[in-house]
């Protein structure tokens, strides 16, 4: 049995632990009445027990992490994820049309399309369709820069 706790698995467990601790602390700080803690506290206890179990399982190697994707694929995923985060943030900052056009163009090119002219043309048509059809069904105003 080998001891294995990959960096990304450790990051996930740390993320769960930090968020759960914060939610529990915040709920207790807001009010210690039973009605306020009826779900938070029992779930926090369960999460604490499960965290210990999962870390122990990973470190002891009793439940291995399994085969992880290669480094190149992981870096590609992270780039796409960051680009998606920036795109989501940019929707209201730069306008839905511009943000969507750039994201789809870059995404198609990043996905492996070799014809240089096709991604911007596709991105423009897709953005136009999205703004005119999908966007028109929204009950909220949608910031646009060009269209």
């Amino acid at each position: 049995m080998t001891s294995r706790l990959s960096l990304s698995h450790a990051a996930l467990l740390a993320c769960v632990a930090v968020i759960s601790c914060y939610i529990t602390w915040s709920a207790i700080a807001a009010s210690t009445r039973l009605y306020n803690l009826i779900v938070v506290v029992p779930v926090a206890v369960i999460i604490a027990v499960l965290l210990i179990t999962l870390v122990w399982q990973a470190l002891s190697g009793s439940v291995p992490d399994g085969a992880l994707p290669d480094r190149k694929s992981t870096i590609g995923d992270i780039i796409m994820l960051v680009a998606f985060g920036v795109f989501c943030f940019g929707l209201t900052k730069f306008g839905f049309d511009i943000a969507t056009f750039i994201f789809v163009w870059a995404g198609v090119a990043f996905g492996g399309e070799r014809r240089l002219w096709l991604p911007p043309v596709y991105a423009a048509v897709f953005t136009l369709a999205l703004v005119k059809f999908f966007g028109s069904l929204f009950p909220f105003p949608m910031p646009l820069l060009v269209l």
């Binding site: 870059a106 996905g111 929204f138 909220f140």
Partner: peptide, 16 residues
């Protein structure tokens, strides 16, 4: 290559 960025964009729009 086309579906992934397009549907991701659609997901973000859907969230809005």
């Amino acid at each position: 290559a086309y579906l992934v960025p397009s549907v991701l964009a659609l997901c973000a729009w859907g969230g809005y």
